[in-house]
Design a protein around this nucleic acid. Sequence first.
DNA 1: ATTGAGACCTGTCGGC
DNA 2: TGCCGACAGGTCTCAA
Length: 273
Amino acid sequence: MLNRLPELPEVESARRLLDPWMTRARFDRVEVRRPDLRHRFPRRFRQRLEGHTVLDLSRRAKYLLATLSSRETLLIHLGMSGSFGINTLALDPHDHVVFHMSGGAVITYNDPRRFGVMDLLRPGELAGHPVLSRLGPEPLSPAFDGAALAQACRGKKTSLKAALLDQRVVAGLGNIYVVEALHRAGLSPRRRASTIATASGAPRESANRLAAEIKQVLIEAIARQERRQSYRSSPFRVYDREGEPCTRPRCSGTVRRFVQGARSTFYCPVCQR
DNA sequence: ATTGAGACCTGTCGGC
DNA sequence: TGCCGACAGGTCTCAA
């Protein structure tokens, strides 16, 4: 469903799901049922995994990184529809990769739209990686705050929404959580990104508020994933609520939708300025 | 350099 | 009922 689109909280949730089954376990057998996700798999993908042990499973932005005993790193991106299953009974047509681990666990990667990525990085390829090395700060790290956000937005002529989707500004947000954070912070998605910083790049109050709301919306989403309860109504305050009353306290506005960078933006024109 | 638009992919949904 | 186009979105590529 909507909240399964893999943004940072969903990827963190996947990491926590996999960790007990993967870390300290060995790849006994790897099945590649479809090698054509977003890119072709690296050469000898299966052989480079089999027989090796996972030493550590971490997350950077929307990427999962498994450090292997071979000193290579398995890099995984869930794209738009990727998910993992543990010991699922029957194979689905979209189960593209199956890891048979030494502990007996069978880990299945499912990805109907095949926008996901699996790659293997040799020891030297991690540091200067064309994507990883350009990622901005982790939004939940202490390094990310209003000052860091303002500095990254300084002089940017693009919209605040586009800036937050730029993984070099802050790493791990997608359309939904950007829309939610802007709503919570009471900031218009159309506003120029540079307006949250002073001319010298110092944070305005809006930058501090936005950074705090980004953290909060992610923390709440991760906690929701952990509880794994199903919701009868949307957990989002503004996303996909076009025409509904604004959910912010004392706001009488109505949620509007418009397209920004070929993505749907939902916002309240009354309280988001 | 920065910014924006199009492409990739397929399940779902609304309209006729 | 069934078909078909529109839509969803993360990231890469290309062009202005």
